[in-house]
Design a binder for these strands. Sequence first.
DNA 1: CTGGTCAAGTGGACCC
DNA 2: GGGTCCACTTGACCAG
Length: 327
Amino acid sequence: MAGERLFTNSPASNSNMNTLFHSQQQNTSQQPLDSLFLSSSLPFFGSRTMVSFEDAQGGRKRCNSYLFNGFDLDENGDDEMDDYFQQSEKKRRLSVEQVQFLEKSFEVENKLEPDRKTKIAKDLGLQPRQVAIWFQNRRARWKNKQLEKDYESLNDSYESLKTDYDNILKEKHRLQSEVESLSKKVLARETQERESETKKLLQEPVMNKPLVDSVSEGEGSKLSIVEACNESNHNNNSRQEDISSARSDILDCDSPCYKDRVLQRNVFEPEYQSDLSQDDEDNLLPPYNIFTKLEDAHYSNPHHNSSGYGFQEDDHHHHALWSWSGY
DNA sequence: CTGGTCAAGTGGACCC
DNA sequence: GGGTCCACTTGACCAG
């Protein structure tokens, strides 16, 4: 079926035969691209010609002298015609010259208008349909090449981005471990300073005899100044002089301003944060220490939390603080 | 024998 | 409705 169709549409029965029998006439119509083929003694054969692509380039050879040898214009007889039509039922490659001509046309314009198609077909001795098919296949090949190029380009881009990403990831891990290391150092330093401060405070009452005496005399106990401070914190004193806060080297909790700042200001206000950083910039301590202090300020006073009054406000603070401490 | 390449077939979508 | 384009397929041919 395909063979019949091929045969019907075959240029062998039309243009090829015309080409073969009227080659001299075809060669007389000179077009700009025709100059390529002026040296050829034979006209362009149609698709049924058995011409190797590489013949002109000294490449592979086919046993394709069939038409050239057997179809000599002077000697072709009925036998050769029969052989030709038998052979014509198989696919034939276009000649080198035809392909070169088509390639040049394709470079000029990869689409094919009807007039141009007819002209090219006439120039090459091909069926217009063959020219159209060649352009279709050529566009398909061009598209595949473009896809390959695009793929390579995208692949290169991907590799480049991946390398950058890996480098950034390494840098991130390095910085994370650095932060961790520095945090540990700061924590250790803070602990050490607290201990030394505690020792200092514990030694002070011993040296300050009158104070201790007054305390022990007044309450009849041997409470240290620390216990005295803790005791005072549980007395629903609005001052909340937490001893740990009092020893803080981050914020001066001895100052009345500290509690006020904690309780009255929203920790998420940029102003507040900037205040902290500005006030304590010399301390160079990480934020979590600050929030530890803030939590202490709240939970060290059970009366404050258990109170039904102002719970909403405190709850707001707790959410904020927990969010930050979780961070 | 197998895989690659090329010309051509096929069917659907689109346009005038 | 005919022509064209496109994606996919088929069949011929060749080289390794």
